[in-house]
């Protein structure tokens, strides 16, 4: 009985299910193509997607508060271009990177201000920043990729290795670990969850909601900016049109990993496994020589099926919980006057 219930709870644990899917995919691809199950291939996958991993991990914390950031793509492009321009001007790479990170974090400051101070919904605020940032990225490089005058060691960052590991994998590992510690071991994770679950209660408990949300927007912006620097180093140019679907991949990984758009739940580990699943599928299908359009179709189908299963699970849970307490419900806190005026003011 004990064993069975433990088994059941394991099956219901989303991260475990995701992990099983991840393993199954690996087994399948490894058996289907020889070139897949190679250390080199895994290194390749991780190097190419290091930015996605640590950005998604950090953005999980933001999403737990019920906020999200669509401007990461624009930030990534902007930061890559800026970094290349600064490097091309002859600045030391470290200084160029620091300036770029400072500039990139401005995305987070603006997003955070719009959301917390001006009560604009995260969707609209960050969508607006997506347009503005994308435009600025094109503007500073006049619509052209930055290639000229780059120092010889420009691509060095992504080429160097520490302890036999490519440095970008190390950066991803460190980034993911930091986000995990923040989510699980510090108060930030708890506060983020409280804000997403019941913002009012969090504020009344004395949590400075605005400051937490603001900080997490900046954290995500920093990650996206670093992602831009890493991408520019990897491809050797500052390309304003790079990684068009980065923000989509980030959000998809987070949602597949079990964090809903409304926040309140979710784990960094779930996000990371989900991101790995997406990465592995892309790589595996490539290895199998599947044509691009089928890859797109498969991506769409997997997305819908995965989330369907996911939401059906949590739906069942929610319903089981909702039934007993219904009827005892006390004062309803549904549409308050504040909410009404907020909606009129076009909060999402």
């Amino acid at each position: 009985m004990q064993v069975q219930s433990k088994l059941m709870s394991l099956v219901k644990n989303q991260n475990f299910v995701l992990l099983l899917i991840f393993i199954a995919l690996n087994v399948y691809f490894a058996s289907a193509t020889k070139s897949y199950f190679q250390v080199g291939n895994y290194f390749n996958m991780l190097t190419q997607n290091a930015a996605l991993l640590f950005t998604a991990a950090a953005a999980t914390l933001l999403m737990k508060t019920g906020n999200f950031d669509l401007s990461t793509t624009a930030n990534l492009a902007f930061s890559g271009v800026l970094y290349a321009i600064l490097a091309g001007m002859g600045l030391p790479l470290t200084l160029a990177a620091l300036i770029t990170l400072a500039a990139g974090s401005c995305f987070g400051v603006v997003n955070g201000l719009l959301v917390t101070r001006y009560d604009i919904s995260p969707f609209i605020a960050t969508l607006g920043m997506m347009f503005i940032g994308g435009g600025v990225a094109l503007l500073i490089c006049d619509g052209q990729s930055v290639r000229n005058g780059l120092p010889a060691n420009f691509m060095g960052l992504m080429r160097s290795e520490v302890l036999g590991l490519p440095i970008s994998i190390l950066i991803a590992a460190v980034g993911v670990t930091v986000s995990w510690i923040m989510a699980e071991k510090t108060l930030i994770g708890k506060y983020a969850m409280a804000i997403g679950s019941n913002k009012n209660a969090a504020a009344l408990a004395g949590i400075n909601v605005d400051r937490v949300v603001m900080g997490l927007f900046i954290l995500v912006a920093l990650c996206a900016s670093l992602a831009g620097i890493m991408t520019a180093s990897r491809i050797g140019t500052g390309d304003p049109r790079v990684a068009e679907f980065f923000f989509m991949d980030v959000i998809v990984a987070i949602m597949l990993g079990g964090t809903p758009l409304t926040g309140g739940r979710g784990t960094v580990i779930g996000t990371v496994i989900a991101a790995m699943i997406v990465i592995v599928i892309g790589n595996g299908l490539n290895m199998l020589g599947i044509l691009v359009f089928w890859q797109t179709v498969i991506k769409g189908v997997i997305l819908i099926v995965a989330v369907t299963i996911n939401e059906k699970f949590s739906f069942e849970k929610l319903r089981d919980q909702a039934t007993p307490s219904k009827g005892d419900a006390g004062a309803g806190n549904g549409q308050t006057m504040e909410e009404w005026s907020l909606r009129r003011g076009n909060i999402l």
């Binding site: 719009l114 607006g128 920043m129 347009f131 503005i132 435009g135 600025v136 094109l138 619509g143």
Partner: peptide
């Protein structure tokens, strides 16, 4: 590219 910037500015 100023158009996209204007787009975002108008929206916000």
């Amino acid at each position: 590219y100023y158009q996209t910037i204007a787009y975002g500015v108008i929206l916000i």
